[in-house]
Each structure stands twice: as structure tokens, then as C-alpha cells.
């Protein structure tokens, strides 16, 4: 059973023909005070994430991942060559830093890349096989040549009537309710 507090619809969705129109509409929606919204486009539109007030800290996550990789790589080699099984190889010091650089570099890159990709997938909550926006007729063109702006019902300013009128004032190609 659905919780009683869930709004009756997911939100309202307007369709636009170009990325410029979508960016403009998103900025106006933001100026009008809407915060819970998302735009959908076949190509990334520069500036749109900023217009809906979204910033990502993922690069810092990747940096931390890389740092972990570097410490892990060098640590593993130090532990193996100095602590666990010290062995004299051609008279080199036990902790032979230059020889340990390649592996440290590779683990740094590996951990960074894994953090980047899985960070993106997890923070984007993918995989999401079902999402309400897929219910809108014509949304399949969001992966070809159409641009969509959805204002979600969870937005405090959301009002089925007034938000509909607001979106209509943006002169979209189409306007639809998004059922759950």
C-alpha cells in the first residue's frame, strides 16, 4: 500500500524542442521559486544543473579514492617487502621506492576510476528500471531530440493548478501530468 502522504501524481512535465528553450524554462522555473525539479535531455545542456541548483561533490570522492589507492599500493608493497617477507634483491634497500612507483601509480588510477564510475552510478541511483517520467507519452524522445522539464509534486510550492498554468506560460510544445 502506498503511504497516505504521497501526492496523487509525481509531477507535471513540459516538453520543449530545443536545449535553449529548456534552459530558459528551467531558469524561469527556478526564479519562480521551484526547487524540486529535474530536466531531461538527449545531450547534456550546459548550465542546466546550475539552474536547478545542483552541484556535485563527486570529484572530491574521486580524489579520496585515488588517495586510498596510492596508500594501498605503496602500503601493500611496503608491507610485503619490508615487514612480511624481506628479501635482498640485487642489494637494493628493502623499501626501494623507485621500484614501487609503477604499482602505486596503477592502483591510484584504478581506485580513482572505480570510485568515479561507481560513484556516478550509485549517486544517480542507477539502475532504476522504473521511473514515473517514463509514463509520459512521447518521453521516449528524451533520448533522441526532445527536452523535458518536470516539476515534482514534492516541491513545497507545487500546486496542480497554478504549476500547470506556470508551465503553460513557458510555451512548451506539450504539457502533461506525470502519474506514479
Amino acid at each position: 500500500m502506498e503511504p497516505a502522504t504521497q501526492p496523487p501524481i509525481y509531477g507535471l512535465m513540459a516538453e520543449f524542442a530545443t536545449g535553449e528553450a529548456l534552459l530558459d524554462a528551467t531558469q524561469r522555473a527556478s526564479n519562480a521559486g521551484y526547487r524540486q525539479m529535474d530536466a531531461y535531455s538527449p545531450v547534456p545542456v550546459e548550465g542546466i544543473a546550475e539552474a536547478i541548483g545542483f552541484k556535485t561533490k563527486l570529484p572530491w570522492g574521486v580524489f579520496c579514492g585515488g588517495l586510498t589507492g596510492a596508500v594501498f599500493g605503496m602500503g601493500l608493497q611496503y608491507w610485503a617487502s619490508v615487514i612480511y617477507y624481506p628479501m635482498n634483491i640485487g642489494g637494493r634497500p628493502m623499501f626501494s621506492i623507485p621500484s614501487f612507483i609503477p604499482v602505486t601509480f596503477e592502483t591510484t588510477v584504478l581506485f580513482s576510476a572505480l570510485t568515479a564510475v561507481f560513484g556516478m552510478i550509485i549517486l544517480n541511483k542507477l539502475p532504476t528500471p522504473y521511473h514515473p517520467v517514463f509514463n509520459v507519452q512521447g518521453f521516449d524522445r528524451a533520448s533522441t531530440d526532445r527536452y523535458f522539464l518536470a516539476i515534482e509534486a514534492t516541491d513545497p510550492k507545487f500546486n496542480r493548478q497554478r504549476t500547470w498554468e506556470f508551465l503553460e506560460s513557458l510555451k512548451p510544445e506539450n504539457l502533461a501530468e506525470v502519474p506514479h
Partner: peptide
């Protein structure tokens, strides 16, 4: 496709990590 829907928030993270990669 993992249910990719072209969300602006997703694109933002996507393009960011694509450049990092």
C-alpha cells in the same frame, strides 16, 4: 542502459566523471 533517463542531475555527474576518466 541501467534505466538512464537523461536527467540533468545525472548528466552533470556523468559529464564530470567522463572528463575525470
Amino acid at each position: 542502459s541501467l534505466g538512464w533517463r537523461g536527467s540533468a542531475i545525472h548528466w552533470k555527474r556523468y559529464t564530470t566523471i567522463y572528463m575525470i576518466l
